[in-house]
């Protein structure tokens, strides 16, 4: 087995697509991580189920773009409810995410029992959503991903100060008159958009890894948001390329390989990052440890 696949245009296309998804995941994951909403990806991917089944029930076809649209709408609705619940009650983000995840998914299962009674039954190929099929990425898909990436990055740049305030001190942001809830809705919408992009390539379960791991890794190397976002984007892109490369080389599914690369980078950073690395903490005598605040 040689490295010929590296020159293969299909492979390069998949690598570029995965790198873009990883980069967007890293950038947005940074904000999710700082807002203690790391598991947003996981929750939204479950919240997509009722949308998929409803789209199937209403139109009666298993057309992929249609199911994706249903999935995104339903995940977005779930995300809006998470924002509403965390802003208007004492429920904290983790529980709000868990609530939406389990109730939406349960309702999706209920709808699924209805769908199975239809004469046109046959479950809509859910496996594709679960594990993703990066190898099936087309030129058109990658162009779409690139466009969405640029859009997301531009919004983040334009609203940099606002998102920063929201991430570190929402109370302060509200006090200086920022529309905190609207900003939160926008940020969450961007994350849902990124998840919808990732659905096809890495699958829903592993999209959480792309959101969490690069951001958690970047957090170990710096205390500054600017550097953290750039690093996380870089780590995400690196995971995308490495994962695609390894998957082509060993012949394993791409999604899990991307997730494992991201996890590996996170593990390495947790152990060896300067100052915060756990390895240094063991070697330094007590009293000289300076890891800075967590999170």
């Amino acid at each position: 087995m040689g490295f010929a696949f590296w020159l293969d245009p299909t492979f390069r296309l998949v690598a570029v697509g995965s790198a873009l998804i990883g980069a967007v995941g890293g950038v947005l994951g940074t904000f999710a991580l700082l807002r203690r909403q790391s598991l947003l990806g996981d929750a939204m991917s479950h919240a997509a189920l009722p949308g998929i089944v409803l789209a199937f029930l209403l139109v009666g076809s298993r057309d992929l773009p249609l199911l994706l649209a249903g999935a995104s709408l339903s995940a977005w609705l779930g995300a809006l409810l998470v924002v509403l619940i965390t802003h208007r009650s004492r429920i904290r983000p983790d529980a709000a995410l868990g609530l939406i995840l389990s109730v939406f998914f349960g309702f999706g299962i209920v709808l699924l029992t209805v769908a199975q009674r239809q004469p046109t039954a046959a479950q809509a190929g859910l496996e594709r959503f679960l594990f993703g099929q990066a190898a099936m990425m087309l030129q058109r898909d990658v162009e779409g991903i690139a466009l969405a990436t640029v859009l997301i990055l531009v919004v983040v740049l334009l609203l940099w100060k606002e998102f920063k305030a929201l991430a570190f001190d929402p109370a302060f942001a509200a006090a200086i008159g920022l529309p905190v809830m609207a900003l939160d809705v926008l940020l969450t919408t961007l994350i849902v958009l990124a998840i919808a992009l990732g659905l096809q390539a890495v699958g829903v379960v592993l999209m959480s890894a792309v959101l969490v791991a690069p951001a958690a890794a970047a957090r170990q190397w710096t205390h500054r948001l600017e550097r953290m976002v750039i690093l996380a984007g870089g780590f995400g892109a690196l995971s995308g390329v490495l994962g695609t490369l390894l998957s082509g080389w060993i012949g394993l599914p791409t999604g899990p390989m991307i997730a494992l690369c991201a996890s590996g980078i996170a593990l390495f950073s947790l152990l060896f990052a300067p100052r915060r690395g756990l390895v240094w903490a063991v070697q330094l005598p007590r009293g000289k440890r300076d890891a800075g605040p967590s999170g």
Partner: peptide, 18 residues
């Protein structure tokens, strides 16, 4: 102390699942 609860969860389970 390097990561919060949510990130710790989000790091462990996708790795095991993968």
């Amino acid at each position: 102390g390097r990561v919060k609860e949510d990130a710790a969860l989000g790091l462990v389970f996708p790795a095991l699942f993968s």
